[in-house]
Design a protein around this nucleic acid. Structure first.
Lengths: 224, 224
DNA sequence: GTAGATAATTTACCGTTAGTACGATAGATG
DNA sequence: CATCTATCGTACTAACGGTAAATTATCTAC
C-alpha cells in the first residue's frame, strides 16, 4: 500500500475536479444558447445537446432553468466587485489626485465587467419581471444577493472615503452610488435596444462619456 | 328612408366601438393577470377567464401572448410623449426661467407616467432582455417603435431649444437625452429590485432627487 | 479478477400551456 | 328566410420544463 489512505482522497479530488469541469461545460453551453436564443426561447434540451449530455444531467447540477441562467451571472457580479475593490485600494492609498479621475475609474469598473461579458450583463434584472426569482436555488440566490449587496457597500465606502479626502462634494452616498449604478445600467440597456439589429452600438461610449462628465461636473470640487 | 345611407355607417361605427371595448376589456384582464402572476406564470386561459371570454377570442385580437403583453406598453409610452409635449410647449412659450426648472419638469414627465402605471413601466426591460424574435403583431411593433422614437425626438427638440434659450450649457443633445432617460429608467429599476418584498420604495424619490440635482449642476448655467 | 455498492447518466415519460381547427350558436343584416 | 359575423366550446397538437426509473460506468472490498 504505497499510497495508503491517500488513494481514496486523491480519487475523490479527481471526481470533484471532473464535476467542476462538467459544470463548467454546462455553463458554457448555456451561455451560448441563452444568448443566441434569448431566455424564453432557449430550451433545456438544446443546452443539453450543446453540452453533449442529456437533459436530466443538467438537472443534477442546476435545480431549474432559472437557476442555470442566474448562475451565469454570478461571475460577472463578482468581477464588478473585484474591479471596485481595486479602485477602493487605489483610493485609500491616496493615489487619486482628483475626483474626476476617481469617477472615471469607478464607472470604468462596471464598464470593464460589461465589456468582458456584455451578454451576461444585460440579464441582471430579467427575473424580477418574470416573477421566477423565488424558485432559485437557495445557494445561488444568497450568493447573488450577498455579492450584489457587497458591491454596493464597497461603492458606498469608496464615496465616503472620497468625501473625506475632499475629492468630491458632500452628498448622500447611498443615493449617489445608486444614481451612478442606475445610470450605467440604464444607458447600457438603452443603447442596447437602440442598436438592436444594427452594428455594434457606437453611441454607448459617447453617451457614457457624457454621463461621466456630468457626474464629475456635479459632484467634484473646484475644477469648473 | 329617414336615415338614408347613414344607417350602415352608424352601425359600423357602433361595431367598431364594441370591438374597441372588447380589446379594452382584454387588456384590462391581461394587465391584472400579468402583473399578479408575472409574465411566465400568467396563462392565456386565465386571462380569458378574467375577461369572461374564451381563449380563441383573445387570439382574434392579439397574435400571440407577447403581443398582448406588449400592447400594455403602448399607452404608457404615449403618455410619456404627451407629458413631454407639454414641457416642450411650456418651453417654446418662454415660461422657463431657469434650466433647473426645465430639468425638473423633464424628469417629472417620465415620473408621471411611471407613477400612473409602475407595473407597465417594467416591461421596457423585458422588451430588451428577450427582445430578439418576439412575434409581435406588426401593428404593435411599429406603433411601439414609432412612439418610442418620437419621444426621443421631442426630448432632443426640448434640449435644443433650451440651449438656444441659454437655459442649459451647450452639450450634445443626442447623448444628453439618452443619459437622462437611461438614468431615470436605471434608477427606477434599481430601486424596484431593492425594494422587492419590502414596503414601497422609499429610496426612489430621494435617489431621483439627487439625480435631478446632479443633472442640474452639470448642465445648467450660472447658479452654482 | 469479480461481486456488490455507489454515483453518474440516460431513456422514457408526465403535466402544463401556447396556439389552432372546427363545428355550433346567436344575433344582426338584407 | 338566407347570410354574414363574432363568439363559444371543445378537443387537439406541439413544445417544453421537469422527474422517476432504468441503465451504465466507476469504485471498493475481498
Amino acid at each position: 500500500m504505497y499510497a495508503g489512505s491517500n488513494h481514496k482522497r486523491i480519487i475523490q479530488e479527481r471526481k470533484k475536479r471532473e464535476k467542476g469541469l462538467r459544470i463548467e461545460s454546462i455553463l458554457e453551453a448555456a451561455k451560448k444558447v441563452f444568448f443566441s436564443r434569448g431566455y424564453l426561447k432557449a430550451t433545456m434540451d438544446e443546452i443539453a445537446l450543446e453540452a453533449e449530455i442529456s437533459k436530466p444531467t443538467i438537472y443534477q447540477y442546476f435545480k431549474t432553468k432559472d437557476d442555470l441562467y442566474f448562475s451565469l451571472m454570478l461571475p460577472v457580479v463578482e468581477d464588478i466587485g473585484i474591479q471596485m475593490e481595486k479602485v477602493e485600494k487605489k483610493l485609500v492609498d491616496g493615489k487619486y489626485g482628483s475626483g474626476a479621475h476617481l469617477i472615471k475609474d469607478f464607472i470604468g469598473a462596471s464598464y470593464h465587467s460589461y465589456k468582458t461579458a456584455p451578454d451576461v450583463f444585460r440579464i441582471v434584472q430579467l427575473f424580477q419581471q418574470t416573477g421566477l426569482v423565488w424558485e432559485l436555488n437557495e445557494k445561488t440566490r444568497s450568493a447573488l444577493n450577498e455579492r450584489g449587496g457587497y458591491n454596493f457597500q464597497v461603492g458606498r465606502r469608496i464615496m465616503e472615503t472620497a468625501i473625506k479626502q475632499g475629492l468630491i462634494k458632500k452628498v448622500r452616498i447611498y443615493e449617489l452610488v445608486d444614481v451612478i449604478w442606475g445610470l450605467f445600467v440604464g444607458i447600457v440597456q438603452l443603447e442596447d435596444i437602440k442598436s438592436r439589429g444594427k452594428q455594434a452600438n457606437k453611441h454607448l461610449k459617447s453617451t457614457l462619456k457624457l454621463a461621466e462628465t456630468m457626474i464629475v461636473d456635479a459632484i467634484t470640487i473646484g475644477e469648473r
